[in-house]
């Protein structure tokens, strides 16, 4: 436990944890202090897809990339699962996740192997996977076994399943970053040329960062489809900006090399709670996108200002 605490303290996530705590307290008070595991579970259910797709974006940003196709990959995986569930639960899930891995591998091939621009490549694959999702499932629907949703809403060990999954994905991310792969991801983001010269197989590691991102996005899409009891070919659009937002809010600079998965989880929580607070404040949906945009710009801009200040002090 102390190790956990110290790892949070040492990371750049501290600010995000503080903001989250503040927002969570506000949320709690507004809710009239009726805090319960049900509430926490509810929040976890809402935030989980964003956490997972945010983690996906995190691994790509870590190696100085960006992936705009993660949302559409979610849509493909969710739609595939919704269409394929009649064939059996296991093959449906396997194919849905494999689609994510494949999509990530395509991005990785074009970006890491052929050194094409991440922005344009993923813009293009965004269009491709958006199209594929529409072909697989032209309108939201499909069949999701009720049993799966029951599993997701169950409360093993008195804890809501979604909360367990949330912690699980956070641990998964932290574990990946504790391996040699994670260390090399940070090395590439820190100084690509030095990493290459040190013997790190930069192209291969970067490729796997995109594959991992594709896989995680597919997980997020699958979860979204199951929890809403339907596949949807168009859910992706709503996740492109927030996934980057979660990464940025989590204290991860877009030039890569730094930041922790816990920070990203916090970033996702912050964005989601802000959404809930807006709902409570009875503000129209319109504000959500406006505020998301403003937050993203302000946070990145503030980081730039902070860096200047730090430079000025270091002088």
């Amino acid at each position: 436990m102390t190790r956990w605490l110290s790892s949070i303290r040492n990371s750049e996530a501290l600010g995000s944890v503080a903001i989250f705590a503040l927002l969570f307290a506000t949320y709690f008070v507004l809710k009239g202090c009726r805090y319960s595991f049900f509430e926490a579970g509810n929040l976890a259910t809402n935030v989980l897809p964003l956490v997972v797709v945010g983690l996906a974006q995190y691994f790509v940003v870590l190696v100085r990339g960006i992936d705009l196709s993660l949302g559409p990959i979610m849509a493909v995986s969710g739609s595939l699962a919704a269409v394929l569930f009649p064939l059996g639960i296991v093959p449906a899930i396997a194919i849905a996740l494999a689609a994510g891995v494949l999509a990530g591998a395509l991005n990785g091939l074009l970006i890491a192997r052929l050194s094409l621009s991440p922005i344009v490549v993923t813009l293009a694959t965004m269009s491709v996977w958006d199209g594929v999702a529409l072909i697989v499932l032209p309108v939201p629907g499909g069949t999701i076994p009720a049993f799966l949703q029951a599993v997701l809403t169950s409360e093993p060990a008195l804890l809501p399943m979604s909360l367990i999954l949330l912690v699980g994905f956070a641990l998964l991310g932290t574990w990946i970053m504790s391996t040699r792969f994670g260390l090399q991801l940070r090395a590439i983001g820190g100084d690509e040329i030095a990493a290459e010269a040190s013997g790190v197989k930069v192209a291969r590691i970067r490729f796997f960062a995109y594959v991992l991102a594709g896989f995680l996005a597919a997980c997020a899409g699958l979860y979204f489809a199951i929890s809403t009891m339907a596949g949807s070919p168009i859910i992706g659009d709503g996740y492109v900006l927030p996934s980057i937002g979660a990464v940025v809010l989590g204290g991860v600079p877009l030039i890569g090399g730094r930041g922790s998965p816990i920070g990203v989880v916090m970033g996702a929580l912050i964005l989601t709670i802000i959404g809930s607070l807006l709902y409570f404040a009875d503000l129209a949906d319109f504000y959500q996108s406006l505020i998301n945009g403003v937050i993203l710009i302000v946070v990145v801009g503030a980081a730039a200002v902070r860096d200047w200040a730090r430079e000025a002090l270091a002088r």
Partner: peptide, 19 residues
């Protein structure tokens, strides 16, 4: 402010959408 173009314009897109 040296905000990366992709974040700046993507964020701006959301702002204009809301506005």
């Amino acid at each position: 402010f040296r905000i990366s173009p992709i974040v700046m314009t993507l964020g701006m897109n959301n702002v204009i959408q809301g506005a």
